[in-house]
């Protein structure tokens, strides 16, 4: 390490680091502000940030209640979807027949816009909360299945059926060798699946108009409450960024322990 220059420069250095990391984000915000100022967009169409903030502070209950519900459904759906994807991936790994059938199907589904299935699922299951949950489970299932399968493939495939693998003597082999080798891929799947889980929960709420952030957004937008709609955007962004950051942190923490 090189000796650091005198301490008075420290705030300056921190500013420089922050600037080098966030100049892109700042530039976008500046361009946006400049565009709004120059083009003089009507305030009803696009309110000032201050108005959005005022609405957020004035009605925290509405935001918190809906955000809490969305977050809960997204988290629960993500966990269930990941579990389901992992179990199916292990089943596929344990039998060459199953993996031969399921792997191409997994590829097909990861090459289509799965989010477009939301209206179909909503229609089949009906407009309620368990449908939102089911949608998040299905959306989270695919990355979990695809990545866990890829992680398990680094090992020789299970030549026999699952029960032989899970037989008393094999249980240790499975937990000591098979599962650990899939953990890094599993964490990647978790990080990749977290933002879509939140997004798909909100989209389901938006389309069905039940409750939660998506519903709040829809009712605000249709009632021309632009501050409320943008406030919802802000809350949604914060939740999404938090989830992504948490997933990233979890991935790094687990991988550090793993290696």
């Amino acid at each position: 390490m090189r000796p650091e220059p005198a301490t008075p420069n420290r705030p300056l250095r921190m500013l420089k680091t922050a600037l080098s990391r966030y100049w892109g984000v700042i530039a976008v915000l500046v361009i946006w502000q400049a565009w709004v100022s120059i083009s003089g967009v009507n305030q009803i169409v696009l309110p000032q940030p201050v108005d959005v903030f005022r609405d957020l502070v004035a009605e925290p209950g509405i935001y918190l209640r809906n955000a809490g519900q969305t977050l809960l459904l997204a988290a629960l759906g993500l966990i269930l979807g990941m579990l389901l994807g992992t179990v199916i991936a292990v089943l596929a790994w344990s039998s060459t027949l199953l993996s031969g059938i399921l792997t191409p199907l997994g590829l097909v589904f990861s090459s289509v816009p799965v989010v477009a299935l939301i209206p179909v699922i909503a229609r089949i299951m009906g407009y309620d909360l368990k449908t939102v949950l089911a949608i998040v489970v299905i959306i989270s299932f695919f990355p979990a299945f695809v990545f866990t399968s890829a992680g398990l493939k680094t090992l020789p495939p299970g030549s026999s059926d699952l029960f032989r693998v899970l037989g008393a003597s094999r249980w240790t082999r499975f937990t000591r060798l098979v599962l650990p080798s899939a953990v890094p891929s599993w964490m990647i799947a978790f990080r990749l699946a977290a933002p879509p889980a939140v997004l798909s929960a909100m989209l389901a709420e938006f389309l069905m108009g039940t409750s939660g952030l998506g519903y709040l957004f829809r009712s605000a937008a249709s009632g021309f409450q632009t501050e409320r709609a943008l406030g919802t955007s802000v809350v949604a962004t914060v939740i999404s960024v938090l989830c992504f950051t948490f997933a990233l942190w979890a991935e790094r923490a687990v991988l550090r322990k793993w290696n």
Partner: peptide
């Protein structure tokens, strides 16, 4: 030197849910 800023911009853009950007784009 521009790299960290562009990396951050990309990941922030990715983290913002589409539903939140929709009203902006519509306007």
């Amino acid at each position: 030197p521009l790299r960290p800023g562009l990396d951050r911009l990309a990941s922030v853009v990715h983290a913002i849910p589409a539903i939140a950007l929709a009203p902006l784009f519509i306007v």
